[in-house]
């Protein structure tokens, strides 16, 4: 679907904006919404990265530092995907 390909850079940019701009308390709901978006726009690497973030968020043993590290890693994957899709 051409529409999906055309929209992928904007969807990734929005995902980065939402995940980087929310508080730790908001992060579970934001990650939940973002995972559905990037997956539906057929961005498997980005989706896997956000799902990993959700896994860390859902792990009762995770500390705030663990979550922030996972968020940082997820954002680096999204930015790399964003850069790749922009230059395609």
């Amino acid at each position: 679907m051409a529409f999906i390909r055309e929209r992928q850079p904007e969807v990734l940019a929005e995902a980065v904006r939402q995940l980087s701009g929310c508080s730790l308390q908001q992060l579970p709901e934001v990650a939940h919404a973002v995972s559905g978006n990037v997956g539906s726009y057929q961005l498997p690497e980005a989706h896997a990265a956000v799902m990993e973030l959700r896994r860390v968020l859902g792990d009762p043993a995770s500390t705030a530092a663990d979550v922030e590290a996972a968020r940082s890693l997820t954002l680096s994957v999204l930015r790399a995907s964003e850069s790749g899709s922009t230059h395609e």
Binding site: M1, F3, A33, G36, N37, Y41
Partner: peptide
């Protein structure tokens, strides 16, 4: 849906 991207994708399809 509160996600504009989701509404747009469903809308186009």
């Amino acid at each position: 849906d509160d996600q504009a991207d989701v509404r747009q994708l469903i809308g186009v399809a």
